[in-house]
């Protein structure tokens, strides 16, 4: 049995218990039936693999989330102060930025992290470049400095 099957089973059991909140024998039986059914369907769909259950990231992900949370708060303050400024002057920018040597999973995490932080949004992802629209030109410079890309690369290895 693959480790991914085990983690998916555990996840489904927790999901069921959390959502039902009832601890009666009948509910347990129904839950076990549902978990087995979902496992059967997902193994038939061949989606139980490293892509849907990226367990190899577990070791490094807490540090990345802490860093992302800090970035999130900083850029939120920036955007909110832009919203409330009296005379609205903006310098939006649309730029294509190169990225190299990221796995597919790394690209997804990178693009989604950029979209998640306010002030920048990913509009396109190709094999080795990424198109970003930013509310302010300085955010583009921040991304081009490569701090986030380095973090994602570290996360992936």
């Amino acid at each position: 049995m693959k480790i991914q099957t085990l983690s998916l089973t555990l996840l489904l059991i927790i999901f069921w218990l959390l959502n039902s909140g009832l601890f009666k024998p009948l509910i347990f039986i129904l839950g076990a039936f549902s978990v087995v059914l979902v496992l059967f369907i997902s193994s038939r769909m061949k989606v139980i693999d490293e892509e849907s259950q990226p367990l190899h990231l577990t070791k490094n992900i807490p540090a990345y989330y802490a860093w992302l949370l800090k970035e999130l708060v900083m850029s939120n303050i920036k955007v909110v102060s832009t919203i409330w400024q009296g005379h609205l002057q903006l310098q939006p920018a649309l730029t294509t930025i190169k990225m190299d040597h990221l796995s597919d999973m790394g690209k997804v995490i990178y693009a989604n992290s950029i979209s998640l932080t306010p002030g920048t949004v990913t509009t396109d992802v190709t094999e080795n470049s990424i198109t970003v629209h930013a509310l302010d030109k300085s955010s583009i410079t921040d991304i081009q400095s490569g701090a986030m890309e380095a973090r994602v690369r570290k996360l992936d290895n």
Binding site: N76, I83, L90, P92, T117, G119, V121, H133
Partner: peptide
């Protein structure tokens, strides 16, 4: 307060792409 800020930005900003940044404030923080 952040919710209201996001919506004010949604009204104030000049085009679709900048409005999207205002909307993402409400979505995250």
């Amino acid at each position: 307060f952040l919710c209201v800020s996001g919506s004010v930005g949604l009204l104030r900003f000049p085009d679709f792409f900048t409005r999207m940044h205002a909307a993402s404030v409400t979505d995250t923080l």
